[in-house]
Amino acid sequence: MNIFRLSGDVCHLVAIIILFLKIWRSKSCAGISGKSQLLFALVFTTRYLDLFTAFISIYNTVMKVVFLVLAYATVSLIYFRFRKSYDSESDSFRVEFLLVPVAGLSFLENYSFTPLEILWTFSIYLESVAILPQLFMITKTGEAESITTHYLFFLGLYRTLYLANWVWRYHEEGFFDQIAVVSGVVQTIFYCDFFYLYFTRVLRGSGKMTLP
């Protein structure tokens, strides 16, 4: 454990809690892509199956369980409890365009051709693109509430900090997880445009982030 990884995990947790509380307190999931949240729930489910096969640390186990619970709680808020506020018309990204290539790639490029490893690889690839329905939705509607942009900021910051973690681990431990690193770079690139808008519009202005 190093400071980059710990702060990355904290940012990830903060992002998920921000989104959950935003929906819970406003009793509305307007502007939130249910598809992205479903994909994240799928990411956690397929990645954390090793909860049943390997014990790494109490921290690792607790965080995995918390992420899983919060992911499914968020999905259930969007699709059940506050379904009336869900804007399914704007959430029109075709997720099969992500799922099919990601599934194919995880069969082709993995560390070990076993069910658990393929699912882990699938989760890493899927995570790198899971935010696209949300970004697509913002592009389509042309705006996002500032609380939604804070969520995206922390979510983007999390994988960016993991990049620093991987550099650190490579130098300190000789540890290099090629699949995670390449996917993490791809994932971070998707946030670059958003980061720019976040700093120039949300933090300097107030209220919603509107696109030009």
């Binding site: 990884r5 995990d9 973690n165």
Partner: peptide
């Protein structure tokens, strides 16, 4: 060192 039986990162 890669361990196929578990991943220590989240």
């Amino acid at each position: 060192e890669y361990d196929v039986y578990g991943h220590d990162e989240l």
